[in-house]
Structure formats: structure tokens, C-alpha cells
Design a protein around this nucleic acid. Structure first.
Lengths: 262, 262
DNA sequence: CGCCAACTTGATGGCTGTCAAGTCAGGTGG
DNA sequence: CCACCTGACTTGACAGCCATCAAGTTGGCG
């Protein structure tokens, strides 16, 4: 399944070969679960994490779970059990309001972590659903408690990951609050490119895993606006789009539009 | 100074009498600093925090700092030293982008906490400035480390506060991404009312501490739009506004506009 | 082959931004 | 005490960006 997904998305073939992983066996060995053996480690763990601390982090990951396209990792209102670190696949998080509005708050890929919204009152407030088959490592908070009292480095790790999430959301708030549609879309494309690059995929040619509507929801725009801007960017020679396949052509111009450095 | 501020803002007189506090003496006793003696405790600490854990939390607060109107608590780029719990005063947090855009991400009042944006890379990414004279308790992260290895309840506390911040930001993203101007403004007014109420102030009559421009920045709107909507809400009998004094008249209608329950 | 979701593109309208001209309130100095 | 000044606010006129509505087109899949 994982391989099939990659085949359907030729431009996203990894340029770095990642360790292949056994499929959802009911009981995985501690070594197999270990973060220190995980190809996605560099994504999960903030830079600067010491190697000595990795074995401590390994102790938290208790299980791995296979999630199919369309299946929820968790839903708003579910009791909080812990956080999820994605190993493969592609996911979206979204919130729903009382009156039925919906808003995509993030797209998760390998190495990203979800679930911090559930800590405060013991229930998740968001929904996370797979856009593509994948696997999630489960880190239950019961584990966190027992391990982290013995291990000071561990809480540091979690503080940093949560801090990163807070900063990420602040960036999105600025995008939603101050940027025009074309800047939002340019920013979105470049952000995806960076994230693919960080995982060893091409940063200039990749496949979108989400619909125009989901992009629009994420960026506070309508799907028609996304479609129109993709077309316009293509006319202007910034990108090439065909369906969900995107190729970045004029990176400086995209950065310019997104309001980044130069 | 604190009293003077309240005198200038008659509708905000507390309906609950709060303990008076000695002014910024250079060295405060541990008992004076203690959270367990603080009138704002119910705001800082998430509900459900056990009393036994309070003494542990007390150990983290190392100093208290007086901040005058217009003075920064910290700025983007400053080295991270810890988090700040506000005791009195009124503050705003804002982010600045490379190309000069600015966006207000939150307004802080007594019991709120700032500074989590600085954990990840060791530098704050936001700016926090006082809109009104106040005091901030400083919780250095050096303290957190040494205390929390002895005390498991402490990290729980911080996880919950950070989780609350993440959920808060997700709510704001939905507001910025899906709500129309009138809904944003109604939501803003009601949110302020709730927060004043939680601190023992009137929830139907209070003074804004920020300019129309700051409200606009927070809500992703222009100051003229804020002004116009305040005027319109007044014409429609939802509120009464005079300058920064606001009185909520038709709460059901405001909730309706904000898209909340009924 | 036909269906359906996803996507594209056009026409139109409205919400909100922009520009502009005041008004108001608080603070300062004469 | 009053004139003046400045920042904050209000209000009007207009424009433009993006949403809305509508009608196709495409591509994947049964």
C-alpha cells in the first residue's frame, strides 16, 4: 500500500532511500518501534536533540497503528490518550464549529505530530483524518508521565515540539490575517516544497495530496480562488500544474509573492 | 498606579475584592511570590489542578517584574529565559513579518501566560508589550527543569497551559479563516466579556484597553471596519459604545452573530 | 461506457479595503 | 483658562478582491 501510493505519485519518489518497515504486525518489537531506528527521526525530533536522549524517547512509543485513507486518527470529543507521530501517509487536521463551519488547520506528513489539542481538558478538540494510507506511532501520556520523571530530557523534547506547534500556528494566523490570496497560495506552495525537501523528496516537483477545497479551507479561501490562482501562476510562468501535480518553475518570484526575504 | 488605572475605567471595578499586593520591591519573599497566595491563581492554573501541587508550582516563580505602558515584556529575537504570568495590567502580543506586516496574536490580562513561543529555538518569535501598567511573574525555565524532575505534577501543569494556548490559536484560525467581519467583532466582544467575567469584573460593561487598529489587526480587519461595525452594532441596539467604553445590551443577538450555540 | 467527484472558467455582486475629510478627547503650553 | 496639537476615532465615497452562482470539462473508477 505504501509503495502503491508512491507509485501513483511519481515526482515524489524519495531522493533519499528510507529504511523499509514491516507492515502493521500486531505486536512490534521495541527495537522496531524505536525512534532511534526511525528514518523519520530528523523530522519528529527538534534539531539539537542529543543522541543520548534518544533511548529515553524510544521508551515512550508504545504502539504503531495503520490508518487507511478516509479513516480518522481521532475526532473532536474523543478522550485524550496521547499524541501521534506520523511515520508514513498524509493527513489533515480540521476543526468544526457549532454552526457547521469547518476549517483545515494543518496537513501532516511523515515526522509530524498531532494531538496536543487534547491535553488540556482530556478530550481532543480537532479531527485528524488520513488523506492517504499511513502509519502513526502512538505515544500515550501515561507513558510520558512514568518515563519523564526518570528522564529530564524527555519533557524538554515535548516542550519544544509543542512550542514549535504554537509558533507554526502563529505564522498561520499572520497569513490568514494579513496576506492576500495570491500571497497565501504562494506561501502554501513554498511551505509544502520545504517540507518535502526536508524529507528527501523533490522540492520543485511534487503531487498535492489534498483537494482545492481543502487547500482553500486551510488558507481561508474558496476552492475557485485556489483554482484560479493556480491557473494564473501557471500563465505567469511561476509554476506548472496539472491536476494535483505541481512543478515550481520560478522560485524567486514565488518567494517574492509570498513576502519572504527577497 | 494600579488603582489609578481602575479609576480611569469605572465600569471595570472588580466585583470580587482581590488581595492587594506590595509594589515591585527588589526582593520579594517566597510567600509573597507564591502562586498559592495569588488572587489570579484561578486564571493561571487550569481547572482541576490539585491543591497539593500548588506548593510545587510556587517553587517555579522566581521574580516579579513591573512593566509600564509601552514597555516590552520581550521582543522577537530576545533569548528565551522563561515564561511570564501576568498579575496585573493589560498586554498585547504581536508578530512582525520580514516585509513589515504586523499582526496582533493575543491580548493578555491578569492570569494569562506568555512566552511559549521562545522554547523551540531558544529565542522568542513574538513581541509582548504593555498596553497598561502591570506586573509579570517570571518563571525561568532553568527553574522548571530542576523542579519538575522532583515533581511530576509540574510538567502536567505546563503541558496543559501550552495545550490551552494551542487550542486558543486554533479557534482564532477558524475565526480568521471562516468568519465574516461582523461575526469576528461579535466574537471578540463576547470573548473579552467572558474573560472579564472570569476575573470578577462586569461582563456587560467594560473598557477596551486597545485601539481600533489593534482590534483590527487581531481580527484580520482594518480599523475603519471595526469602527463601522461598532457603530452599526450600536444602531441595531446590540451594544452601546462611547470611545473605549462598551456596554453589551443584546447578548443573545451577539451570540447569534458570533455563530455560538443559539 | 457512464457516473461522479474534482476541477476549471466565466459573469456578477458584495464585503471590506482604501482614500479622504472631518470630529473628538486628552494633554501641553502660553 | 483657553488655544492648540496630536492621536484616536468616525463617517462617506469609491474601488477591488474575492465569494458566489453557474456551466462546463476532466479523470478515475465501477
Amino acid at each position: 500500500m505504501q509503495a502503491a501510493v508512491l507509485e501513483k505519485a511519481p515526482p515524489n519518489r524519495p531522493t533519499v532511500v528510507l529504511r523499509s518497515v514491516p507492515r502493521s504486525s500486531p505486536q512490534l518489537s521495541r527495537a522496531t518501534l524505536a525512534c532511534s531506528n526511525c528514518g523519520m527521526r530528523s523530522q519528529c525530533v527538534p534539531s539539537g536533540m542529543r543522541n543520548e536522549d534518544m533511548s529515553e524517547i524510544d521508551q515512550m512509543v508504545t504502539s504503531r497503528r495503520r490508518i487507511r485513507r478516509g479513516e480518522h486518527v481521532y475526532r473532536a470529543g474523543d478522550p485524550f490518550i496521547g499524541i501521534f507521530a506520523f511515520r508514513t501517509g498524509f493527513f489533515k487536521s480540521y476543526a468544526e464549529s457549532e454552526d457547521g463551519r469547518t476549517h483545515v488547520t494543518s496537513f501532516e506528513m511523515a515526522g509530524d505530530i498531532s494531538g496536543f489539542d487534547g491535553i488540556e481538558d482530556g478530550h481532543y478538540t480537532q479531527n485528524v483524518i488520513a488523506l492517504e494510507d499511513g502509519e502513526a506511532c502512538t505515544i500515550t501520556f501515561a507513558q510520558v508521565d512514568s518515563v519523564s520523571t526518570r528522564v529530564p530530557g524527555l519533557q524538554h523534547y515535548l516542550f519544544r515540539v509543542m512550542s514549535r506547534e504554537i509558533v507554526r500556528e502563529q505564522g498561520l494566523m499572520m497569513l490568514l490575517g494579513t496576506m492576500r490570496a495570491e500571497a497565501r497560495v504562494a506561501h502554501f506552495i513554498l511551505d509544502l516544497a520545504r517540507r518535502f525537501a526536508a524529507r528527501g523528496y523533490s522540492s520543485t516537483e511534487f503531487n498535492l495530496r489534498m483537494t482545492r477545497e481543502e487547500i482553500g479551507s486551510y488558507l481561508g479561501l474558496k476552492l475557485e480562488t485556489i483554482s484560479r490562482l493556480f491557473s494564473r501562476f501557471q500563465d505567469e510562468g511561476l509554476i506548472e500544474v496539472q491536476g494535483r501535480a505541481i512543478k515550481l518553475v520560478d522560485l524567486p518570484a514565488l518567494h517574492e509573492l509570498a513576502g519572504e526575504h527577497a
